[in-house]
Design a protein around this nucleic acid. Structure first.
Lengths: 206, 206, 206, 206
DNA sequence: TATGAATGAGTCTTCATTCAT
DNA sequence: TATGAATGAAGACTCATTCAT
């Protein structure tokens, strides 16, 4: 009724769509529903974004960039390498804590629409390489010094992501099966963060 | 017209559905398409399984059981604990190599239909506890002996799953971005298996 | 399971179909459901009756004959005419008490499939005319004697049927709206029978 | 192609649906057919009314109200009671003449979907009670004065409805069996109206 | 006599999209 | 900028019926 003749419908649609896509994925979210929750006409959604696909893409790409951002923060070179690894793991973990649904969305979309990988690819290739190269170089130095066992940097990054993401992906299962409250799960998650740091650091020992 | 001698349409539907559900998920697979690929009438699918949901469930539950089976194999008690961990990781990894889409399906369905967690829960609670309890006990013995650092068994199992699953979940990305051939990725995967064993074993050191 | 290898499936199908048709009408009753309630294969229903339509017809025609039977009983000529009217009304009413759903079925089918009237017509024309003619004759005699006001026999018969049927047709409404128990409605119905006799007899007075 | 200028599709759908539901009942009318007769897309029907059920309900409830309206007209208190009964019967009868299919629809739906009674109930309870109470009171006065035999008002109303409705319910049978033309049946119907007035008035005599 | 398998036609419903206004 | 109306395509599902065995 009292329809906020709001200044910015486009933004509202974007936010609502983002929320719904994260909640239920692309296929299970209808433009009808987006419109209903926004409180606008169904045609409005298409007016701003032409197609559902385009709407999704704009959100998806933003989310990819978000997800990758923790890996792009340059570190103070004075900090010991181990400490930097720790900071990296924690930054990534903290991001996931704020955006726990993102990994779901990624894997969901990668399964249902393989073409989505292209979006990911272009995001990756657009990244500034410098940080990555520097990190790779610093890692190699540590390996050469014998402080860290020989390890492929990609494998390392994947392992970090995997260990971090797991705690959030598995949340609905653990929570339901173990009948665990939200606040209790928060503690489990915090513990898991430390555990992941420990696991990675130990695994890097020569 | 050219009425394919049936032999076993039910089985054929089940297999085709399994393949399609794994390829594209529940929502993106239509009974029409299942029927088309089987080469039968769409009504046939409903004849055997009543609803798409029931058809999916029967497949989903089987897949859950498959996925959990590597964790249920009892080990020879004479084998050193570290070796047993190694065998566990490898068994799980090998299973994933044969069924690389399963993790996708799980996370996909967990996102789009939270009620699926119930299926998982009931599968989990139906499991024989003995193997798990024995494993937990043996782990505790090792910790007490000081051979292994204190670690929560659930955290350990999640980490194993996470590291193993990651290599397969991330495959489409790596392969596409790095423009890597199937056989080259096989090598990467094999290497990753060793890497995961190493990572876990090192991380358990006191 | 312990499927009564019963001697007479045909009869069982017929009875089940009759019950279901009376409960829910032709369109709302599926052969699938009939088969399920009988406990036999769906094809069985068609084996005996070829089509759902034929199955229904055989039941429908029987029901028409049942419904008309109270009007075909010859009366002792010594009984005073008024008493005979009373007996007729009561016989018809008692039949309805045993078969309260029949009027529903008739009107239902007459609406949804006008071709059904043909079945009714053939049933009517097959009736022995003698009883009807005798009754009409006796009525005329009474009119001529001045005992009864001039009235068309068809109109009279329709009125009798209408008043009798009404109590049963309206049952679900009255019962629901007035929140009346089954046994209380029985009393209402019994009272209505007397009321109908009274109404008709009074209405015939010159 | 030849896109009929819409003007008012919603209204057209409503009218067409009303006609078809009255002709063939709920179950036998498909939204496809409604659309076809309207000359619009099938989705259009759902656009305005969401579901077939909702479309039907809106029509059904209107029809119930129509059907009850003759009983809600207040009468001039100066008119003798007998005359008022006569007017009531005739008003009801005339309504049925304009809407002869309505009773069919009611009994059809009451049979095939018992939940419909609820719609009726709510319509009945929403009625203004004053007219009914006044009528009941006036009836009692006449009974007390000895002008009318003791009779339950509900029974009286049911009898009026029954006698009136009967002429229309039985029309297809009489017309077909007796091979009677439309105009001839009109005469029969007119005669029946008088007959019903006579029947009721006589039956009320003390 | 009995039935499992099979199917074409049809059901209601939802959806993304377009277009005139 | 905004929207009500319209639609083609597709969705899951049900049903009466047939046929080989």
């Amino acid at each position: 009724m009292a329809q906020e003749k709001n200044s910015n419908n486009e933004q509202l649609i974007l936010e609502t769509a983002e929320r719904l896509f994260l909640e239920k994925g692309f296929a299970m979210t209808s433009t009808t529903q987006i419109a209903k929750e926004v409180g606008c006409n169904q045609a409005m959604v298409h007016y701003y974004f032409r197609t559902k696909e385009k709407l999704f893409q704009s959100i998806f790409e933003k989310k990819i960039k978000n997800f990758l951002s923790p890996f792009l923060q340059d570190f103070d070179s004075n900090i010991p390498f181990e400490k930097r690894i720790e900071q990296l793991i924690e930054a990534h973990f903290n991001f996931l804590k704020e955006n726990p649904k993102i990994p779901f969305l990624f894997f969901n979309e990668l399964l249902t629409n393989p073409a989505r990988v292209d979006a990911l690819k272009s995001s990756l290739t657009e990244l500034p390489q410098s940080v990555f190269l520097k990190f790779r170089n610093d890692l190699q130095v540590e390996i050469d010094k014998g402080n860290i066992r020989p390890i492929n940097i990609i494998n390392l990054l994947i392992s970090i992501m995997a260990l971090n993401v797991a705690g959030f992906l598995i949340k609905p299962i653990i929570q339901n099966v173990g009948n665990i409250s939200e606040s209790d799960y928060d503690k489990i998650i915090e513990n898991r963060k430390k555990e992941n740091v420990l696991t990675i650091l130990k695994s890097l020992k020569p």
